[in-house]
């Protein structure tokens, strides 16, 4: 049985949650938030969407195979680890530049990697479970 109201709310809610997750990710260095929390919130948005619409719709929505998202998250984090090495510092040393008064640095990149990986992981897990255990009907 389709519930139009619920579907409208949930698809709207997905954007709200992903937006909020990104907000938490970027302010996480100074206020509560960060890659882990942001990632879980975004993934929770997708989970909600998946419960209502089915896991196939989630995969359609994000277009990319969640395993690739997971892998690219790991790569981004690794990149953040390797950038300092090109500058002759030990890996994972924070390297900072300032752009319009906002401090940007490899820790932020690392946090983005964590965020992407957590989203990819949870989405991958629940879409697989829903698919194999036939929760999509």
């Amino acid at each position: 049985m389709r519930n139009i109201v619920l579907e409208r709310i949930v698809s709207l809610f997905l954007y709200v949650m992903v937006g909020f997750a990104l907000f938490l990710l970027f302010r996480g260095h100074n206020r509560p938030g960060g890659g882990f929390i942001g990632g879980i919130i975004a993934a929770a948005g997708f989970l909600l969407y998946g419960i209502v619409f089915g896991s196939e719709k989630v995969l359609e929505k994000i277009r990319v195979n969640p395993r690739y998202i997971m892998g690219s998250g790991l790569l981004i984090a690794l990149l953040a680890a390797l950038i300092p090495m090109t500058l002759g510092k030990p890996p994972l040393t924070g390297v900072w530049t300032s752009l319009a008064g906002i401090a940007l640095g490899t820790p932020l990149l690392f946090d983005i990697g964590v965020f992407v990986l957590v989203v990819g992981m949870i989405v991958s897990i629940f879409t697989n479970i829903m698919d194999v255990l036939k929760w999509n009907s």
Binding site: F36, I40, V118, M121, I122, I125, N128, I129, L133
Partner: peptide, 20 residues
């Protein structure tokens, strides 16, 4: 603890899949 919780989440999913 923060990482432990998230890892716990991953491990939980893994155990559940293993159990299935």
């Amino acid at each position: 603890i923060l990482t432990a919780i998230v890892i716990g989440l991953g491990i939980a999913a893994y155990i559940l899949a293993l159990k299935y």
